[in-house]
Design a protein around this nucleic acid. Structure first.
Length: 162
DNA sequence: GCCAACGTTGGC
DNA sequence: GCCAACGTTGGC
């Protein structure tokens, strides 16, 4: 029998005005649509069911990690790319080979506190984390298990990482 | 609202 | 393939 690969860890950014962790908490499960950056898309295509995601709020008063989600459906075509009424409509995307993908995630835990970007930047052990690096804009990025553990500890989270 | 740090587009 | 112009992200 094939050995199950260890879970991977990711960080996904969302503007809370558009889609917040509370939206996900209400729905329980949600489709992560609207990603229109190839690197971010490629990262989503590498996601596997069970991978954990740090949910990050961007473009808000206190940007930071607000909780944990889990991938519950692997990459499939993002329907909004074919919808002329959508903000994310992409008329150049071929219908027979959709350019943009999305995954589904489910809520694992909403933190009692926000682990702010400021906090992340202040921790020397997190200096290698993509999200804290200057000018980092990538909205879907991999996170090392060691960094995930630190973020979870800062949050006082119930969730554990490998 | 500003602007740095990108990523994308399109002329050549 | 180069690169200028333009668009977007996201902290501040």
């Amino acid at each position: 029998m094939a050995k199950k690969p260890p879970p991977q860890y990711w960080l996904m950014k969302s503007e809370p005005d558009v889609y917040s962790i509370d939206s996900l908490a209400q729905q329980g499960r949600g489709a992560w649509d609207g990603v229109r950056n190839y690197q971010a898309r490629n990262n989503m295509r590498r996601m596997r069911v069970g991978d954990l995601v740090l949910f990050y709020h961007s473009s808000t008063a206190v940007p930071g990690v607000v909780g944990v989600a889990r991938v519950c459906r692997e990459a499939y075509p993002d329907a909004t790319q074919f919808d002329p009424k959508s903000d994310h409509y992409d008329p150049k995307s071929p219908v027979d080979e959709p350019r943009w993908s999305m995954v589904d995630v489910e809520l694992v835990e909403k933190f009692a506190i926000v682990v702010s970007l400021e906090q992340l930047k202040a921790d020397p052990a997190l200096s290698g984390m993509l999200a804290v690096q200057r000018g980092s804009r990538l909205s879907v990025q991999p996170v090392e298990p060691a960094h995930v553990r630190i973020v979870l500890a800062l949050a006082g989270a119930k969730t554990r990482a490998r």
